[in-house]
């Protein structure tokens, strides 16, 4: 094992994922402790363009038609070869639609321990967030080479960005003939709906809504406020609102002036994309709901009672 830190660059349609910069920032701080280098591992894509602001000492680029679009199978195969050859101290990626599964496969394949949901590693200790953000756990970073799947929270995106492009080294293409998954095409999200990413005021509803019929109350409130309704995953899974209104890891990142989060617990998959909101007001019957850690104001009342009362109060305030 050497002391270098690998970071898997996750990119989709020409865009590097924010979590990659977070992982690079973590890798930089870890490399100071280990005395190693930060090596960004990039598969496919336009290497010059994608790596221009990566805070890494070097980019290892592997190019192959099989790596042109992400599949777990191809990425895991290519990374297996590189890890065996270079034996880094740690391999960091995002705990995302890409990194989470690549890390899992590699952990089983290479017998490397895996820390997922990792927020940060400092002084030989890792901390991770579990149980929908309700618990933090800590432990020693294993002494052997380790895989880490990172979630946002410990480092900012800018900390993983550099003004100067790192050196790109092209790595030989490994044998990818055994890959069992083929990318076919992208399917665009349905269009035609309002764009929640540009709204000034958003009324977010979660499972606390209890029933699709209650959506009317949220629509009425949003209308009174001059905003729009968005939702957490369970609401969309139930089909009460379309995917275009989904906020979170699998939905959209929002940055309104006001986010009224109603009956939303504040799971990391939701909250990681609401931190751009200027003000969050959360309403939840559970005083321990993690959403109150992010909100400026909170109220422990029933959202179903509050929505009509608030609509009324807003209309009155507007003189209507």
């Amino acid at each position: 094992m050497n002391q270098d830190i690998f970071v898997l660059v996750e990119h989709l349609r020409g865009q590097v994922a924010d979590i990659t910069y977070v992982a690079l920032a973590q890798a930089q701080s870890l490399a100071v402790e280990t005395g190693g280098k930060v090596i960004a591992v990039l598969f496919g894509g336009n290497a010059v363009e994608l790596s221009k602001n990566l805070a890494a000492d070097m980019v290892l680029h592997v190019e192959s038609p099989v790596l042109a679009e992400y599949t777990c199978d191809a990425y895991a195969s290519a990374l297996t070869g590189l890890i065996k050859e270079k034996s880094p101290r740690a391999v960091l990626m995002g705990d995302t639609t890409m990194g989470a599964e690549v890390a899992g496969v590699l952990s089983a394949r290479l017998g490397m321990p895996l820390i997922s949901n990792c927020v940060s590693i400092k002084g030989g200790k890792f901390s991770a967030k579990i149980c929908g953000g309700k618990m933090m756990v800590e432990g020693e970073l294993p002494a052997e080479p380790v895989l880490v799947a990172m979630v946002p929270g410990g480092f900012r995106v800018e900390q993983g960005q550099a003004a100067k492009a790192p050196e790109i080294k092209t790595s030989p293409v490994p044998d990818l003939s055994g890959v069992r998954v083929a990318f076919k095409q992208y399917v665009e999200p349905e269009g035609g709906d309002i764009d929640i990413t540009t709204q000034k005021i958003l009324v977010g509803v979660g499972r606390g809504l209890q029933n699709g019929d209650n959506l009317e109350l949220a629509e009425e409130l949003a209308e009174a406020l001059g905003g729009a309704v968005c939702a957490s995953r369970p609401v969309v899974d139930q089909g009460w609102l379309p995917t275009t209104r989904l906020v979170g890891k699998s939905g959209k990142a929002i940055k309104p002036k006001l986010y009224l989060a109603l009956g939303i617990s504040g799971a990391p998959e939701h909250t990681e994309t609401i931190t751009g909101s200027e003000m969050i007001i959360a309403v939840n019957t559970d005083p321990a709901a993690p959403i109150f850690d992010l909100a400026k104001y909170g109220a422990e009342v029933d959202m179903l009672d509050l929505m009509p009362a608030l609509s009324e109060a807003v209309r009155k305030a507007k003189g209507g």
Binding site: S107, A108, G111, M112, P113, L114, I115, F126, K129, G133, K134, M135, M136, V137, E138, G139, E140, L141, P142, V146, A282, A288, P290, F292, D293, L294, A295, K296, Y297, G298, A299, E300, V301, D302, D305, L306, A309
Partner: peptide, 24 residues
Amino acid sequence: GAAVVTRMSPPESAERATMITGKV
């Protein structure tokens, strides 16, 4: 294959929401 946990605790948040109290 998993790291050993030495401590578990609820997150300490830097700032918690200011609670608005009273009837609805």
